[in-house]
Design a protein around this nucleic acid. Structure first.
Lengths: 238, 238
DNA sequence: TCCATCCTCTGGACTAGTTCAGTGAGTTCA
DNA sequence: TGAACTCACTGAACTAGTCCAGAGGATGGA
């Protein structure tokens, strides 16, 4: 978390190696034990230094697998209901989507509140994982209000939902509203993203409206914090 | 950072106390040493538990002063060039601004790049600290392109710069562009915010354009990550 | 060939301390 | 009265280990 006052080298050495591309994106760092030997310090100090580089967004960890060099951040504009795959490939990266789970349930109170539902309503919950260049970076949970989307669960849900909304249901998003907040990863998210429970993620909650101004769905995104940068230009939606 | 597997109580107890308002916003927690006695564990475990609550946004620390309960987050829309004081008081909180430093320099390359300056240009750098309910939460650095703002340094710079732009220079922001990224606090920012160097902050870089579409200034904001929540509604600027 | 089992390597979580440096209240003294 | 000094208390940073659990490759038997 903080600096190695006595041994300010380790953090700086690794940082230089990363900026100097002696360590390449996605490359694995030596293990914590090896590093503590190399820099003749304790594993706790090594962990602190690695955590510091992690909060700088230079490296990331995978639970019980090791530490790796972070690739450049993706620029993401949550206002433009742009297709994930398109956004990623425009930035010369490779996107994949994996469907984890689908369920249809009665909206529990927290979801009902976000969706402004006043009565018991059926919602579809779609959980997906998104990969960039083969690395898991995003856990997404979509909550669709059931009656707006008859039969959607039979479609291919690894494609863009926005596109599906448009093509199958003729919905264009007239308005969307979102919150960005640094948060701790809930257990199920942490597991899916290969991080340890309670680690920091960037959480984005989005609510979408159709042409009639009705809320049709909401979305909870949990990003690995080193993978993304929110980037918004007002000119794009004036 | 992680959980106390053996003693899962401490984190949960503190969380409950906070949600149950047995510990109130801005209230100081017992010292790390006291907590390690109370929960009969080591200071390292205490620190881990506290760090975990910190990444949840429930508590914050002040360097060598202690740990405190976080007040509710402020909702902030960086697109609406709204006055800071107005935004805070609309949320029933009290805002203050403190001027730290003013300087007029030739734009160094990193600033020149953001401001898209092709030649040597004079800029005014205004550093300010913002308080909410008496707590430092935000360090702001404004970089104004000199020739757009003759004589601005003689004005009262603890007020809203946006307002000053409008009233004195008849600038209305026609467009603004910003990036949000979780980052580590640079040393001078950490010191001003009373956090330790390298701790996590939410960094927002904003670039503003005048009516003619020229870049007139940019701004670097460093927020204590538990104090804020980015909240944007597309309807407000369609 | 395929699947289960084992074994090694990883980070996660912990114990039990020490030393350092900034904060801030309280005291001293011109 | 007010500025300078002292000192207890705080988190920051560190040493030196142990034990645990998941990941994933190697092994070996059906």
């Amino acid at each position: 978390m903080r600096k190695n006052a006595d041994n300010p080298k380790m953090k700086d050495v690794l940082r230089e190696q990363i900026f100097g591309r002696a360590l390449l994106p996605l490359q694995k760092l030596p293990s914590e034990r090896e590093l503590s030997d190399l820099f003749s310090t304790t594993r706790i100090s090594v962990k602190d230094a690695l955590s510091a580089l992690e909060t700088e967004g230079l490296i990331y960890r995978e639970d019980r697998r090791g530490w790796f060099v972070s690739p450049p951040r993706i620029r993401y504009n949550p206002l433009s209901r742009c297709h994930f795959n398109q956004m990623i490939s425009e930035q010369d990266r490779i996107a994949e989507t994996q469907l984890i789970n689908i369920s249809t349930i009665m909206a529990p109170s927290d979801y009902a509140k976000v969706l402004e539902l006043r009565e018991l309503t059926e919602i579809h919950v779609i959980e997906r994982l998104r990969y960039i260049d083969g690395r898991v970076v995003l856990f997404v949970e979509n909550c669709l209000i059931g009656h707006f989307f008859p039969g959607i669960l039979e479609e291919n849900l690894t494609q863009s939902l926005t596109q599906l909304y448009q093509e199958k249901f003729k919905f264009t998003t007239s308005r969307s509203r979102f919150d960005v907040v640094p948060a701790a990863a809930p257990a199920h998210v942490a597991k899916a993203l290969n991080i340890s429970a309670g680690q920091q993620v960037l959480k984005i909650c989005r609510v979408n409206y159709n042409q009639q101004g009705q809320i049709i769905d909401c979305e909870f995104e949990y990003w690995r914090p080193d993978a993304v940068m929110i980037s918004i230009d007002s000119i794009e939606h004036i």
